[in-house]
Simulated scan of single mutants.
Amino acid sequence: MINARQQGYLLLAITMCIWGGFTLSTRLSALWGISAWDLVALRFMLAFCLLMPVLLYRKDTAFLWTRQSFILAMIGGVGYCLTAYSAFHFVPAAHAAIFLNGCIPLCTALAAWLLFRQPFDRHTWISVLIMLLAIAAMSLLMYQETGVAFGFGDLLFFLSALWWGVFTVLLRQWKLSAWHSMASVAIWSALVYVPIYWLFFPKNLSGPEPLHLIGQTLFHGIFVVIIATLSYVEAIKRLGAFKAGSIVTLAPFIAAILAVPLLNEPLSLAIVCGLLGMGIGALQPWRWWGRKDSLSQQIERQNKPS
């Protein structure tokens, strides 16, 4: 039997593979001609079909009829997915690591201050400064290379980071369990978005290869929505929020590097600058300096004379 710490790292590895795969697969779906409208609908329809019978069987549906569940779904489900998936149709995968995953810690801190007046700590201010410098250097280099500092896709990624930042803060404030928050997002997103999609949004389900549609639906509807959420929460229980959050943030940056050989995407000096700056700002490596892990701290406390 493996111990709790080893279980935590195993769960974290699963989460990183899925989150990294999210970046690559979503960019791949754009190259395959699968529209963002279609992918969001397929993702939530499958998750709904899998989760709703479980909730009914367990007679665990009361939490769905709260305003918290609905608001979380509209922000972290419909809003986030529409903007994030759409962005991949305009810019390469590396931009997601910079303007989406790199900006999520900043947007989360900003949302906490705007909604609940939670002040920035010293580490957040350092991260903000590093990120702003990285974005400024990246925009300057991009302008020199292409004549354009930012694209529409970058704006959509940043908007997605804002959605996720607000979602994270509300989730933390309302203290919903991982299972209830995940089910709320999946169920309400399907109930609200799918009918609107079928009635009003353009559809292109006959254009892409059926195998591509099935693969993307299974990956996003099962692995991203359900498995990654549960594995990440369980990893936090075993390793702590700081260590788990810091390590898993690397996944999208690794995916951005892998996109160069796998998807034949360019890796310019501007992108490298953005990846390094946003990665350092998001990970906050200076917080690791001189920091002892939880096991060492526990042993130290036990050895202290009473």
Rank of each mutant, 00 (worst) to 15 (best):
F152V: 13
L171M: 08
A186E: 07
L211D: 08
V148D: 05
E209G: 03
P195G: 07
K175M: 14
I126Y: 13
Y197P: 03
S231R: 05
G147S: 06
E209L: 03
S139N: 06
F200D: 13
V225N: 11
G147H: 07
F219E: 04
Q144V: 11
I227N: 01
G165T: 01
V225A: 06
A190K: 04
L156Y: 04
A183F: 13
W125D: 15
Y143C: 02
V233D: 10
H212T: 09
F201Y: 15
T146V: 14
L159K: 05
L205G: 02
S127M: 12
S181K: 05
V192Q: 14
S139K: 01
V224H: 09
A228K: 13
Y193F: 15
G240L: 10
S177L: 06
G151E: 11
V225S: 11
H220F: 10
L162S: 08
L133Q: 11
G165R: 00
Y143R: 02
V128I: 11
L141K: 03
L239F: 11
T168D: 01
A228P: 08
A190W: 02
L213H: 12
D154Q: 10
Q173V: 01
Q144T: 13
H180K: 06
E209F: 10
L230M: 09
A136F: 10
I135L: 07
L239Q: 09
F150L: 12
L191A: 14
E209M: 04
